[in-house]
Design a protein around this nucleic acid. Structure first.
Lengths: 251, 251
DNA sequence: TGCGAGGTCTTGGTCGTACCATTTTGGCGC
DNA sequence: GCGCCAAAATGGTACGACCAAGACCTCGCA
């Protein structure tokens, strides 16, 4: 199955061969690669080289390694999480302004909303509306559980993206969401903004459920107006934002 | 600077320490890490472990390694390409239909175009127009160099995305481009479509240079109409498309 | 004095071996 | 039949040696 290596960086050569085998489908997800000592023979390379190649493929998310008997390197199906991780790392080194993120998300949200109205099932739309209402009521409590509301907010966004029936939108949105751990920014703390945003979520969901794209987009716009106001008031209070302030309380 | 490792997987511990040092700014881009043999001592680990950790960080895009005297591991500034690579790999494992991709790209293109008109410099816009004209003339030749035109097309798209002055758009666009090697699908082969698409590119660039968003969006729409027609005619000729038919001849 | 060829030193890249840690499996004894 | 322990498989770590590439220094020759 594999050929001995001769060229430059041996481990890179191995990575390419295995990666190609996986992407071609010659190695299916769940399948087990030979043991390191076997590959050492098949590739005609030292074990260290094999291990470095496996390390790289592991980092790429293509392999998972278990130790012990019946262990070894197993082909993995790539998850959005891998992409998110990579994006998150990038954003940590290149903090983007809140406005940059808001701008991008607003674009995506508008496109997704239109598609979701056109393609989402009745059940989807009702579930979305129910979720939005639930979020609203959760936020109306005194001392709301911010972690829970944040989680609900994320799941609603994800559900909406899924309703668009285009996996690319879904993947990009979830990469953005997962890229930033929620505890980094507690914009949620602002009670005034919180209530308006939650009510707006319900309005949006209702417009979507009623198949009213114009109204829905209008509410989406309102959401981002609120968000921008909130960011602005926050940066006034605490000086310029340095940390990547990347999630919205309730969009 | 670094502490000896004791816990579970030693190389992971090292990765975390170095990664933290880089993200904290304790290690600045361009800076050189100690040699492997030095780190071997500092971390109190074998050299193989150090090498595996470096391999991981290299894969993440955080380090670049040169060999020879004065070589070593150097801290790198993360590029959009790193993130795009990750997303591209993901897309290779999860092929999507042409329509899915077209839909997504059209959304992105429209948003990018509006932003590019608003934010791109005069020079950017003229360079874009010049590039589009050059593409048009290249394609008018008999027996055009498809590899070159494809490359030019990609660079124009990337330039446009950069003009939008929002790295997130740039990231997504370059990931989409990288996801699909050009030789997989030679839609470019169709001479009728080719000429129209190239002319349309020039029209688009001209509208952008003239700061006419409405006209530009109209041309963008036309481009995707052409693309959909082309895909359709192609799938009629050769049966259902199975391969991820993901690039356009000249968008 | 200037300059080039070759040596030398640093440093990553590869190989080999040995040993440890963990997990599965099977056999042995009760 | 059940449970415990030993053995085997396999990744994880360590150490040592040598190779290869690149930067720098030295020495000899013109």
């Amino acid at each position: 199955m594999f050929l001995p290596v001769t060229l430059g960086r041996a481990s890179e050569e191995i990575v390419l061969q295995v990666e190609a085998a996986i992407l071609d489908g010659r190695l299916a997800p769940g399948e087990r690669l030979p043991s390191e000592r076997d590959m050492q023979v098949q590739f005609g390379a030292g074990r260290g080289v094999i291990r470095e190649a496996i390390k790289t493929l592991q980092q790429k998310g293509l392999l998972a390694v278990r130790k012990g008997a019946k262990g070894g390197a197993f082909v993995r199906s790539l998850e959005v999480a891998n992409v998110s991780e990579s994006l998150a790392l990038f954003l940590k080194q290149h903090p983007v302004s809140p406005e940059t993120l808001i701008e991008f998300r607003e674009t995506m949200d508008r496109a997704i909303t239109v598609l979701a109205i056109a393609r989402g099932s009745k059940a989807d739309k009702e579930a979305l509306l129910a979720g939005a209402r639930r979020l609203e009521s959760l936020l109306r409590e005194s001392g709301p559980d911010l972690a829970a509301t944040d989680e609900l907010d994320r799941s609603l966004n994800l559900r909406l993206a899924r309703m668009a029936a285009n996996p690319l939108f879904e993947w990009v949105m979830s990469a953005l969401q997962m890229g930033f751990s929620s505890h980094d920014y507690a914009l949620y703390a602002d009670p005034v903004f919180r209530e308006k945003a939650a009510a707006n979520w319900s309005d949006t969901a209702q417009a979507i459920a009623a198949n009213e794209p114009a109204r829905a987009l209008s509410f989406i716009g309102h959401h981002y107006v609120l968000l921008r106001q909130c960011v602005e008031s926050r940066s006034e209070r605490s000086g310029p934002v340095e940390a990547p302030f990347l999630n919205e309380p309730s969009d």
